[in-house]
């Protein structure tokens, strides 16, 4: 069996056991931290579909997380409480916005794509700050949360934990299946040589647009869960630095690898927590750490853990 698949199964088994194991050693509060890492991982998995498999470096992906969170929060405020309905609303809105911005952004490539996604991200950010009825700059605190047909299992504690874990598993499985399918191969072919792929009869733009919309919708779902976990949404979710963080997670974990995004997300959250517990100014260490990782650990974390080298470079 593929080593990365074993690693993936190990990760999920560990995550499944955590809510039962952690209270035994008196560290139950850590589940909150794991939820945070899993939410980051869901968004990162979707971004890896774009960057790793599609070669499309987006610097505006956090906007879709924020859109998902806001769509759910606003629907919740207007009385829709069922989380499944909220999910549909989130998927519809992020998918629709991605369809429009994507078809415009995909007219460009490379650095220009990075810049135009940044522009759309900033537009989303400023749009959210202008929603005076929903908190504007300060964000919106939610007094009630989403329910599952009236039951509050999806709100707190282990219920929420398993919902997030399930979503992570689903997006991990879905993106992996997709990347191994014909669709994924065309996407990677278009990354490595768009002209040849076009000549072979595939519409490169159409494939990329589908990937862009799917990635946005998954990011939107993570946004919905971010709202449910934090009980608060704010425009800061869409700040460009958040998109930068997502890129860090994806690249640190290893591009277009099965578990890279999850490893990267946990690495980031653990480093933040660990360094933060030693010194308050943990960023003084984290910054240079990033530089060293780029200079010396090229293939990302998942390459260090699974010995098989994969040559996935994005120009």
């Amino acid at each position: 069996m593929d080593r990365s698949l074993i690693l993936g199964l190990l990760i999920f088994l560990t995550l499944l056991a955590m809510p039962f194991a952690l209270p035994l050693i008196g560290q139950g509060y850590l589940t909150g931290l794991i939820i945070k890492a899993m939410l980051l991982a869901i968004a990162a998995i979707s971004l890896d579909l774009l960057i790793g498999h599609g070669g499309l470096v987006s610097l505006g992906h956090a906007a879709f997380v924020a859109l998902g969170a806001y769509a759910a929060a606003i629907a919740l405020q207007s009385g829709i409480e069922n989380i499944l309905v909220l999910l549909l609303i989130t998927l519809a809105l992020t998918g629709f916005v991605a369809l429009i911005t994507g078809s415009l952004a995909l007219r460009t490539t490379g650095v220009y794509f990075l810049m135009i996604t940044l522009a759309f991200g900033q537009m989303a950010y400023f749009t959210l700050t202008s929603l005076a009825a929903y908190g504007g700059d300060d964000g919106l605190t939610l007094w009630s949360l989403a329910t599952l047909f009236g039951s509050n299992v999806v709100q707190k504690g282990n219920g929420l934990y398993f919902i997030v874990l399930g979503t992570l598993l689903a997006s991990w499985w879905f993106v992996n299946r997709m990347s191994q399918s014909r669709f994924g191969r065309v996407l990677r072919a278009a990354r490595d040589n768009p002209e040849r792929t076009e000549v072979m009869g595939y519409s490169v733009t159409r494939y990329r647009l589908v990937a862009y919309v799917i990635a946005a919708m998954i990011a939107g779902v993570s946004g919905l869960l971010v709202m449910q976990h934090a009980e608060f949404v704010s425009p800061a979710l869409a700040a460009w630095q958040r998109s930068g963080d997502l890129i860090v997670v994806v690249v640190l974990g290893g591009l277009a690898t099965r578990n890279g995004a999850i490893l990267g997300a946990f690495f980031l959250v653990i480093v933040e927590e660990l360094l933060g517990s030693f010194i308050h100014e943990w960023r003084l260490i984290y910054g240079p750490l990033l530089v060293f990782m780029v200079l010396f650990a090229k293939g990302g974390l998942s390459d260090l853990l699974t010995s098989k080298r994969r040559g996935n470079q994005v120009a």
């Binding site: 960057i51 470096v57 990033l290």
Partner: peptide
């Protein structure tokens, strides 16, 4: 970093931003 991919450049220079912003704060 000149010969590396744009993504590596983004990442490394992002690290420098984080470091210097924090240093200025300290």
């Amino acid at each position: 970093l000149y010969t590396r991919s744009h993504l590596d450049q983004v990442l490394a220079t992002f690290g420098i931003i984080i470091f210097l912003n924090e240093l200025a704060k300290v």
